[in-house]
Design a protein around this nucleic acid. Structure first.
Lengths: 184, 184
DNA sequence: GTTCAACCGGGATGACGATCCCGATTATTC
DNA sequence: GAATAATCGGGATCGTCATCCCGGTTGAAC
């Protein structure tokens, strides 16, 4: 147990954020194979700076992904105030799909290297997965979602949707949402 | 205009097939980043043999993808005999999703390098896309599919489904199929 | 059975990119 | 404002891989 380390120097913190944001944009726009060197260039820092904050490229992937999950977690919290549970569920589902499209590759790359995303996320205090699970069962109790649908189905559908990165994601989400509602 | 070239030597043809099949399996199982060297090793040939048949790795991607599209095209043909147009449509849709999961990455990689998959496929005489489009409109005329759904929606849904590579693809396909049917 | 062009294996080559390192710089503390 | 420890930039290093090449081999034709 070492003493609580002193806070990061201001410029270091700034650079870290800058790299993280740049990386998120660049990965989303051009894929994960963009060289670290290029991310450093666009962020306006040296490659050494990137390396220091994120010792491997993989750790940069993880940081970008966790950062995004934190944001989504905030959105999930904001839905707690929603009265209509069906609306809340479909809102979160839709948002996850829309926002997640760009990050599917990240999740794949990390999973492929034995990085446990869910564990890391929940230890970071943002378990989007649990919130969605709870919303699903509440929405089912409220009669807004087909009770035959399982959480695994939802995850699978999302995994699918996350890949879609074309125009009109709303139409896709609509069709799927329709499939999830109570039949009849 | 050169004279029609003489047929490939028997061993060359055999090796080409062997590489193509091995590549399809390996890509599906371990992703596109597997080294060409490794594919050659598993196929039991030298790297030079792979290079000769497929001068670049990208051309290997294309060959694997077109090969698979040819097979799917054959399946689409076999559905021509089906009486129930709704059944035929959902059969092709489901099959495309199930079989396609492993090949999404291929399509992405090629699209990213300006390779026109649809054009290549149709010039190879196997336009799965057109067949699906026709089946959709026939199934809609027959009252089996919601007439409000467009072909673009279908392509989008497929793009999404293609990403899903987990257990129970059938449940996912069921939910989506339910969303596509005529509203009750 | 002989000839020859096509084909084979796998090592050599070169490019690219992640990571490490170190002298220069700058934020923080007193 | 001086001291110092954290940070910075970007070049050096090392591996990995796609691609090329060439001496040896084999199928095909006569």
């Amino acid at each position: 147990m070492t003493r609580a380390q002193r806070p990061m120097r201001a410029d270091a913190q700034r650079n870290r954020q800058r790299v993280l944001r740049t990386a998120a944009e660049v990965f989303a726009a051009e894929g994960l194979s963009v060289p670290v060197h290029e991310i450093a260039r666009r962020a306006g820092v040296g490659t050494g700076t990137v390396s220091r904050h994120f010792p491997t490229k993989e750790s940069l992937y993880a940081a970008v992904l966790l950062d995004r999950m934190g944001q989504l977690s905030g959105y999930a919290d904001s839905l707690a105030a929603e009265d209509d549970l069906g609306t809340a569920f479909f809102a979160l589902f839709g948002r996850l799909v829309r926002e997640g499209a760009a990050h599917r590759g990240l999740a794949e790359a990390l999973a492929g290297s034995g990085f446990d995303i869910e564990a890391a996320a929940s230890s970071a205090g943002c378990n989007v997965s649990d919130r969605l699970r709870r919303l699903l069962s509440e929405a089912q109790d409220a009669g807004a979602v087909d009770p035959g649908v399982t959480f695994a189905d939802i995850k699978a559908l999302m995994a699918g949707c996350l890949a879609y990165d074309g125009p009109d994601p709303d139409r896709v989400i609509d069709v799927i949402s329709r499939g999830l509602r109570v039949p009849g």
